[in-house]
Design a protein around this nucleic acid. Sequence first.
DNA 1: TGAGCGTCGGTAAGCGCTTTCTCCGCGGCA
DNA 2: TGCCGCGGAGAAAGCGCTTACCGACGCTCA
Lengths: 365, 365
Amino acid sequence: MTVTLADVAARAGVSSATVSRVLNGNYPVADGTRTRVLRAVDELQYVVNGPASALAAATSDLVGILVNDVADPFFGIVASAVQSEMGGEGAMGAGQKLAVVCNTGGSPERELTYLTLLRRQRAAAVVLTGSAVEETAHSTALTDRLRHLAASGTRIVLCGRPPLAPRNGTGEEPALADDGIVTLAFDNRGGSHRLTAHLLTLGHRRIGYVTGPAERSTTRHRLEGHRRALGEQAPEALAEAERLTVHGGAYDRSAGYDGALELLRRAPDLTAVLAANDTVALGVCAALRDRGLRIPEDVSVGGFDDLPFAADASPALTTVRLPLYEAGARAGRLALGLETPPPGDVATVRAELMVRASTAPPAPR
Amino acid sequence: MTVTLADVAARAGVSSATVSRVLNGNYPVADGTRTRVLRAVDELQYVVNGPASALAAATSDLVGILVNDVADPFFGIVASAVQSEMGGEGAMGAGQKLAVVCNTGGSPERELTYLTLLRRQRAAAVVLTGSAVEETAHSTALTDRLRHLAASGTRIVLCGRPPLAPRNGTGEEPALADDGIVTLAFDNRGGSHRLTAHLLTLGHRRIGYVTGPAERSTTRHRLEGHRRALGEQAPEALAEAERLTVHGGAYDRSAGYDGALELLRRAPDLTAVLAANDTVALGVCAALRDRGLRIPEDVSVGGFDDLPFAADASPALTTVRLPLYEAGARAGRLALGLETPPPGDVATVRAELMVRASTAPPAPR
DNA sequence: TGAGCGTCGGTAAGCGCTTTCTCCGCGGCA
DNA sequence: TGCCGCGGAGAAAGCGCTTACCGACGCTCA
């Protein structure tokens, strides 16, 4: 029925070991033999049996990419960047990795489930993207599972999320990079800090903030950066920061829309609104417009991430650029062991302020 | 090092065959034995070796989902719907399917590559979503590969793309559903027809149209529906349809933006613009606004797909709703063999016109 | 010229699981 | 009492591949 290595071997007049060696290219094979084998392979339309070779070699060529939301461009960009490093544009021989994206929908349980499934498949690597859920029970379970995976040979890369807590929670020692888990953290605090500083410099003092979902690390870090800037440059504004902060339930447009409306209710005189990310910011803009406010004349708006649509929204959105594609690609290389991990196994990806048309000095009173 | 079935068996004091049977639950095992085994399993934190069982059982539990663009919500919705049917919310025992999304980026080569990779993994099923590239060489190769896959036991579902050409190109016989490939086609022609009809009924006669990428089936079908409606209700408008059609290079915002600008150049007096999809429509809206035109007072705009953002864009977009989630879920069930295929293995998913605020009668001259 | 070595290829032992076949023991039936 | 049938469990044969390990051949070099 299905063609096996042995069939190819028979056809080429060699042993199956030789065919395997040709296909894996990790053992010297005479040129004549090689071409004979290769010919047999495509005459027979032979396709390796992945499970069998994974079993025999004790490694598979599956690479898992965990994302919170497949439908969100943020993850789409990272995921496609990771995939782009898997090679195989042309040759597509054995050893070609299969990068697959797994959609957790932001649910901790599904995250764990996927991790188990990937372990079951003996995945070569797994890349976890996006913010972590900050809930002790879950993060313990997650850390535990990741360490198991890493120990059993699966390479782990954290992309856009904070490093795992050190093994022993004492906090006495610096986090040991003993587990081989590599982290590419995004500088959410710093980026957010720069954005708020920009607004303060323009003269804004009443700045609304719409956060992302409460329990996520990214949400917290971005808010912290914002508050820190406030504390440094405008302590008086910091006092009402709490009142001017609305917690959005998700990183989506409607969170921004509703959040902005709520902010307007609490402080009709605010002069700027910052959002946890660009998508939320778009919702903020829509709400503002619906209320008859002009951007940036009446209210300035700032986002985060610099997704493609931010640049061509109208007005073009001032935001914080995260090099998502570059980070994803690097994560992919790290996952494949193509790049040496940063010292300490943790690198921070810099966030860059992108000033565009949605921010301007506040209107004089 | 790693725990195997035999270890569990030893611990439970049974043979490995019994453990396997307990885990797969397809053979009677006495209750006492079962619980003993189960206890051993989690004391040892045993995780099945996927490749090994795939090899032995000659089936794997991988389900591939091919999408053109992970970053596009259209595919995100379909993909997550498919995944939602894979079950395993709770139990997560053996046999739990792993749904993975593969990003082709719209490239025919990558599509074929992924198909090979999935074949290599002996995937249980593969779901192909989105429009097909209409290019003879590629579609022949694709059809061929899909038939091979289907023949080797992988279930194939086409979701949102037209059925494969019948095996023998004679066209004499009706397409035989002999290969077990199930298709869930979207009624792109019908939906597009209804949308254009709606505009015509409102009184529009000079309707611009921004298409998607030229070589895709979806692009062609939507354009055909549009032209047919024109032909039926306004033959005089049909005459200039060609001039009022701009071919967008992609299903993205900038295609819409540039397309609308080009249309305005060709026909400053047009009263409506239709876009190949909602994303493109958003670009159209942006361009129109930048030109100082009001929607819908000066120009009506229509999209396609009814993605979530269409409803809360401003103005809310008139579009054609495709039940993406439902279709994806059904595709998932079909892929798992949970639902009996439609007669003839082809079903058409109905598209529904959603009239919102972006369309209105043309302004009187 | 024969020992020594480098090249290439075959042999065969698994990898960890599934599944057929077989076997055991026990209750029911004649 | 002897047999059949059946529920439950084990033995073992692979599934298709990788990879030691080993042998054969043709060189080189003393």
